[in-house]
Amino acid sequence: MLVTLLLAVAGTLVVDLEPSAAPGLPAAVKITQVVTAPKTVDVGFVRNGKLVRVERVVPRGVAPRMHGLRELTQGPTREERARGLRTAIRPGVRLRSLRSGQGMWLANFSRSLFGPGSDQTVRTRLAQVTWTLSRLGGPQEYAAVSAEGRLATVLRLGVRPGAWHATEGEKRYLYSTRGIQLRLWQLGYLSGADVTGSLDYTTSQSLLAFQGWEDLSRTGTVTGETQIALATADRPRPRDRGAGRRVEIHRDLGVLLLIEEGEVFRAVHTSTGTGGITPSGSFRIYRKEIMSWSVPFSVWMPYAAYFVGGIATHQYPHVPEYPASHGCVRLPEGEAARVYRFVEIGTPVHVF
């Protein structure tokens, strides 16, 4: 009886005490064992061009999220193939790593995920990956998919991927320009409206800001080291995480941060004064002019916001990847107007 009670407390038994047929005799004990259902994950395979849910049992001690994607890369069983299930993922594809953060999955596969196959085939592979990830639950809304640690694309969960248009990068690693733009948007370097699928001026400027902040070679293009950094980067963190709005200008990195309530709202490529002529220190915006005339240099400065003497943030047609101004903080077209709207008279500006 003591063993029975201990097992009941442990949750492995259900004990039902029934009265005996005759008075004075011990009560009959009915013992029912509780069987815990095994954990399962859903995997997305293909039948007649459509995604089909297949359930897989998760072995004890194995993380469900890892097991789901590994089962996906192994493909349907012989019995499932006999029932018409197929996969677009090539044999030999391996999951290198999977982690979550910033509301998204970061999935890293072997390079063969993007191996030989038509654009439609690669699209189906990505659809299988994102569908399987979407069935894991949790707050994740996007998935960043990498090959051997190099970002290839970013996809929204629950939405079938669009057409796969690949660009060949360094060492022939493929990437989607739209996917690169989505990643820059998530990290605060680009606006959602600028996710166009085209490597345009705005995207190039955002790449310069990202490369500067991550201490990479500043090219404004999708280099190999940029793909690697994008796969695992975090949104920039300001030095000052106080309340309210403020601006940080990091001269050596060539990056201006717009900060609100301690979080980076936007990271912008900038070019400050050559030879360190832009002073470091803490200042405040004291004057704003949509179109300001520079008397010393006889040039118009659109969206000028002055923070010390005659030095201001403003739009300029040439914003190189190195300090090149006479002291002002040059900003690209589009970004200058954003900074101008963000700041007000009295907004703190910290220059490092």
Rank of each mutant, 00 (worst) to 15 (best):
T274P: 04
D234M: 13
S118E: 11
L151H: 04
R86M: 12
A193I: 05
G281Y: 10
R330N: 03
A267S: 12
R90A: 15
Q74D: 13
V299S: 14
V129G: 06
G162K: 01
T196L: 11
R284G: 02
T167D: 13
G275C: 13
F210C: 03
D119Y: 06
M301S: 03
R83S: 15
G61T: 06
I285F: 01
F307C: 01
V57E: 13
L25D: 13
G281N: 12
K288S: 10
Y286M: 05
S146F: 06
T87N: 01
T278D: 02
M291T: 14
Q181S: 08
S176V: 09
R245S: 10
Q181T: 05
V319T: 05
D119C: 00
E170K: 10
G75E: 11
R237Y: 04
G244K: 03
H250R: 12
P238V: 08
Q211R: 05
R125C: 05
V247H: 00
R56L: 10
Y175W: 14
Y201N: 12
D194Y: 05
L5S: 09
I31N: 09
V41T: 10
I345N: 11
L7S: 10
P238K: 05
T32W: 04
G179S: 10
Y201F: 14
G220H: 02
V3I: 12
A231I: 15
G179R: 01
Q102R: 15
V41L: 09
T4W: 09
V195E: 09
L230C: 08
R183Y: 07
N108L: 03
M66F: 14
V339Y: 01
S206W: 02
I345R: 11
L253E: 12
L7T: 12
E289I: 00
V57M: 08
R160Q: 12
L155N: 01
T221D: 09
R156T: 13
F297N: 13
S325G: 06
L136H: 10
V58S: 07
Y142I: 01
L174D: 02
P302Q: 04
G44M: 12
S191V: 01
D234P: 02
A166D: 11
T130Y: 07
R94H: 09
L72V: 07
H250F: 14
I311T: 00
R53N: 12
E321G: 13
V222C: 02
V35M: 11
A324G: 02
L133C: 07
G162C: 02
V29R: 15
A324E: 03
V264E: 06
P332H: 07
F210K: 06
G61I: 09
L331T: 01
L230D: 04
P116H: 10
V351R: 03
A144F: 03
A28M: 09
F342G: 00
T130A: 14
I180Y: 06
K39Y: 06
D215R: 14
V122P: 00
A231Y: 08
G275T: 15
V35G: 08
H165G: 09
L126K: 01
V46M: 14
R53H: 11
T77K: 03
T196P: 04
H326D: 08
